[in-house]
Write a protein that binds this DNA or RNA. Structure first.
Lengths: 147, 147
DNA sequence: GCTCATAGTTAGGTAGCCTAATAGTTAGGC
DNA sequence: GCCTAACTATTAGGCTACCTAACTATGAGC
């Protein structure tokens, strides 16, 4: 890698860090929406397909198992999820959505998408293209870190 | 706006939300570095130029004033910042860096940039170009929300 | 010189994360 | 078959970073 490339890498690193830091505004704007916190909405979304084990929830959220248990307990108290015994492994717990949970995911998801769409609508078409082109890269970075 | 554009907007909104959610991995990787939390490093960086008022710190961080006070108190206890009376307005407080604070910003900043650069080095040149092109857009979004 | 606005702090509370310790279950070696 | 080691989840206790509400002190307008 050339010296020029090295410098560019440094600059990009710094700029990306700065952009990430400033994204708190965006994240908070989205979270301001609702009755469902970001962590809880993320958890509920995982449950859409099928029952999911607590450990898997933790891995998906990028947190430790006790933190996932905590989220599940809150969702259960809110009547949005339910814990069931895993038929294959009695150490494990399968977390599933309740009917209310399913409805809550759908409506929270739609409302947040609408907020985000409103923000993106203020951009130019070129801006949106540039953003769309970067999303796969960001996902690539993130999944490489997921460990 | 055409129906096709509407749909694209919805899709982009959803994808961007998803990418943001997954960025916890990246943010946590960067924060794992060190002795200085993300909030504290951000606060310290603001002080580099000049004394900054608590209200201004709050606005910059995107938090309420009491939260900024809290950060300042912690930095003060850590010996990294100092509160001084504002000569122009005795209601106000100017927060300034100590010598240790200045050194701490520099080293934490460098270490985090190095971590980020390491992550970005694993991408292709095209990926980095796409990312670099999107950063101004992200900043544009963020500054539109800042208020 | 009141009154109202502004700057910051204090008090008390919440969410979300962590580590360490614990209970129960499964799996492998012998 | 049994014992140990590994795994799954929960509980307990602690931390950071937010928040709102209530307060103190200073500044500004009329």
């Amino acid at each position: 890698m050339s010296t020029r490339e090295q410098t560019e890498l440094q600059t990009l690193a710094q700029d990306f860090r700065e952009a990430l830091r400033h994204s708190v505004y965006l994240v908070r704007r989205l979270d301001a929406d609702g009755d469902l916190s970001a962590a809880q909405l993320s958890t509920l979304k995982m449950l859409l397909d099928d029952g999911v084990r607590v450990g898997e929830i933790a891995r998906n959220l990028g947190v430790k198992v006790p933190s996932a248990t905590e989220q599940v307990i809150k969702l259960e108290r809110a009547g949005l999820a339910r814990r069931e015994a895993d038929p294959d492994d009695s150490r494990a717990v399968r977390v599933v959505l309740t009917t209310e949970g399913r409805a809550a995911v759908d409506s929270a998801n739609e409302r947040r998408n609408a907020v985000m769409a409103g923000i993106l609508a203020a951009l130019t078409e070129d801006d949106r293209k540039a953003l769309a082109a970067a999303l796969p890269v960001i996902d690539k970075i993130n999944s490489s870190l997921q460990n």
